[in-house]
């Protein structure tokens, strides 16, 4: 499996680590424990298309949002997580 990092190009998977589901947003702290319980622990965990956070720790150190099929491992899109906010430091 290789990931097309928007900054570095097509790179082998061992340069990256996967954090998991990128569809859940960090709740507003006023949401309390129940909102954070869902954010921190509960996962839709789909078989199929999955938007997930990957970190290019062995490269540009960008956090990426990778859309990948969990059944076939096929990657359909990659974008920087902070796309639209500066150069992604």
């Amino acid at each position: 499996m290789r990931i097309h990092c928007p900054h570095c190009g097509l790179r082998s998977i061992e340069e990256f680590t996967c954090l998991g589901d990128a569809t859940i947003a960090r709740p507003d702290p006023s949401g309390g424990e129940e909102a954070f319980y869902h954010y921190v622990y509960v996962r839709e965990n789909p078989k199929g298309r999955h938007r997930e956070y990957w970190h290019h720790g062995g490269g540009c150190r960008s956090w990426l949002i990778v859309e990948r099929d969990t059944a076939t491992h096929e990657i359909s899109s990659v974008e920087a997580a902070d796309a639209g906010h500066g150069d992604g430091s």
Partner: peptide, 18 residues
């Protein structure tokens, strides 16, 4: 390996990743 598939049939998600 398929727990989330079944839980989804019951309309809830689990603290699980496959």
């Amino acid at each position: 390996g398929n727990s989330s598939d079944i839980s989804r049939m019951a309309q809830f998600d689990l603290p699980i990743e496959s």
